[in-house]
Design a protein around this nucleic acid. Structure first.
Lengths: 149, 149
DNA sequence: CGCCCATCTGCAAGCGACTTGCAGGAATTG
DNA sequence: CAATTCCTGCAAGTCGCTTGCAGATGGGCG
């Protein structure tokens, strides 16, 4: 479990300010929470964590969108009608290009490492356009083995 | 332009009945409209066509879901938070098992042939669960070359 | 060929996930 | 530290879809 430190906060704040937004507590809390997460979070999941801390749901949503527009977080849709947000790594802005796996049973999302197609498949895929995102759907290990979630 | 005939209707009705549902006018109209379409339709698009004919919006939605559960139509989400429905070919019910590519610009959907991952990737993917669907997102050829859509 | 009842339908209210209007309150800038 | 501009909290609104209900209907059966 990573512990947050004043230094972390200062750094997060700096990132936010650099993108032209004000470094408000709500904004910092949102980005911090996203950076701490290991998978994309939904509006609801963020709200669940931050509303008890005194932040408004609407503010969280607005900040999520602001941060996404500023390019600090990425906004994705995994097929279940929910937006999910993921902090982008400032040193590796393309790190959110990794594939995601969504469990059609429990809805859990997993970030995958790089996946590669066979040369033949790659060629076929290339023919239709530029691929920017890979999304896999299926049943996750724990749902497959019965002990749902 | 395909014209509907009494025979078509009878056939559609038969399909519906075979799946255990009643062959009601609303149900037939919905399936017929979907079969006539050349691309997946949203709830809204269906409603736009059928409500003026006297069908209720809620009934259309319910029937769409009923038909989807019965396996007569498939339900997909293309990243824009709208469900889209497509009639399934009774003679080739697995036709929608292939990977899909959706253009993030124009929203067009392309059906791909089989895609295969490299052994290493396959192994990694397998570790998280059973994959049932592959969705690729990106920019299609025509959007990439500028002439949007 | 008409009955019966589970299945459907239309209507309206309900719901969940955001989004927006507004007035008061902070974060910067000078 | 005052001014200005951007944010925030609260509440109401929107949108796409879902649900409750009472009355209507499809179709297996007598």
């Amino acid at each position: 479990m990573v512990k947050r430190t004043p230094a972390d906060i200062a750094q997060i704040r700096a990132r936010i300010r650099q993108s032209g937004l004000r470094g408000t507590p709500a904004r910092i809390a949102v980005l911090q929470e996203l950076q701490r997460a290991t998978a994309p979070l939904t509006h609801a999941e963020l709200a669940e964590k931050l509303v008890p801390l005194g932040f408004d749901k609407a503010t969280i949503f607005r900040n999520l969108n602001d941060l996404a527009n500023a390019g600090l977080v990425s906004r994705t849709e995994l097929g279940d009608h929910l937006w999910r947000f993921e902090a982008r790594d400032p040193h590796n802005p393309d790190a959110d290009q990794h594939p995601h796996f969504v469990c059609v049973d429990c809805g859990s999302v997993t970030c995958l490492e790089e996946l590669e197609f066979t040369p033949a498949s790659k060629r076929r895929a290339k023919a239709i356009g530029t691929i920017t995102e890979i999304l896999l759907k299926g049943r996750c290990e724990s749902c497959t083995t019965g002990q749902d979630n």
